[in-house]
Nucleic acid binder design. Sequence first.
DNA 1: CCCGGCGTTTACGCGTTCTTGAGGCCGGGG
DNA 2: CCCCGGCCTCAAGAACGCGTAAACGCCGGG
Lengths: 225, 225
Amino acid sequence: MTSVLVVDDEPQIVRALRINLSARGYDVMTAYDGKSALGVAVEGKPDVVVLDLGLPDIDGVEVIAGLRGWSTIPIIVLSARTDSSAKVEALDAGADDYVTKPFGMDELLARLRAAVRRGVAREAGDPVVETSSFVVDLAAKKVRRDGREVHLTPTEWGLVEVLARNPGRLVSQKQLLQEVWGPMHVNESQYLRVYFAQLRRKLEDDAAHPRHLITEPGMGYRLEL
Amino acid sequence: MTSVLVVDDEPQIVRALRINLSARGYDVMTAYDGKSALGVAVEGKPDVVVLDLGLPDIDGVEVIAGLRGWSTIPIIVLSARTDSSAKVEALDAGADDYVTKPFGMDELLARLRAAVRRGVAREAGDPVVETSSFVVDLAAKKVRRDGREVHLTPTEWGLVEVLARNPGRLVSQKQLLQEVWGPMHVNESQYLRVYFAQLRRKLEDDAAHPRHLITEPGMGYRLEL
DNA sequence: CCCGGCGTTTACGCGTTCTTGAGGCCGGGG
DNA sequence: CCCCGGCCTCAAGAACGCGTAAACGCCGGG
């Protein structure tokens, strides 16, 4: 069954969508603000997200960015703003479609079908990267090795996540430091050595001769599959 | 370059789109009716199609069906009809987006970017430069020879990268030194000799008679494909 | 309050890479 | 013919970057 995550702070909108979508055989999840939306998305892995931009806590564009960090789930934006700058902003942030309120239910459903169709055409599979030694589940933020879950600290996970989003590709030290520690620490390459040593102990079969967490001296690191 | 097929029977719309798209670096193809649109699409394999529904010969929905018969190219529909039944029909026929005329150019361009983004995400291949002896993967920063990966030092990679970004073209010594060693060393042409010798040992079949890393005496070097 | 997990920081040994200089080769011009 | 500039090769010391271990301070939970 196709699952839809509806994110809106107006209860009547959520209710209307829930009724219509359920009636058509969709599995409906809901959230009323950006934070919980991101949480629900991670938990429930919806096939498509309907997102209102006017949320109480986070800016809608942030929510889009948060989702796009780990998934390519189609996102249909709902908004009362009709000006093109809002549309451009949302679409360029990674949204797939933009519908202005008030909207026709028929049209929204058609756009939903179009989005889902594309989504399955892309032929999903969860965002999972696997090597011969361990498996990285980007959505669940978990790493498994021999079926057993390996506990990673937040910093360790940050590194693995960046690498797993660029499987096989070289990631520069600067990029790793920037994305994990922030722009203030792009020169603390020592952090990388310390943390890669830890990660290798946790994830590699032979930490002294890593096969997947590869150092490219002077350039960066690479997750070899 | 991204290519766009614009299909519309109103010349002024086609002209306006051609101007705007060309200015933004798109490669623009055009057609004024459904039949030729299908022909051009088969010939030119555009990355995205902008399709007006009110064509003189075939119904727009037929055109969508004709395209969907053999491809999943993103289709953005343009139409003066604002009623939801038209939108539903087009979207269910396989269109990816539906924009009503008159439309804002900014918005159309944003929707175009969104459509193209999805399209390329589906296929995605790294930019690769290959010679008969070795393959340079710019994104992954890898060089392979006979399928086996060749390890390059940062300086060696810097040289290969500059050359690979200018395949077949002559790159002056000054430019190489500038990009790899920085503006302070533009006269150290000895560096180039040392490093090209190393690169030839690593990449050429016969380092003494290079076929790809070519010296142009007094001028610079060239990556011969 | 104590303890453990986590992030940060310092120190040191080691292998690799960069730089530098010397010498030989080759072709064009005097 | 010889000279000379540009190029290739080789080798050795210096400089650099990496891995590892260990210690410190912070914080939250038991």
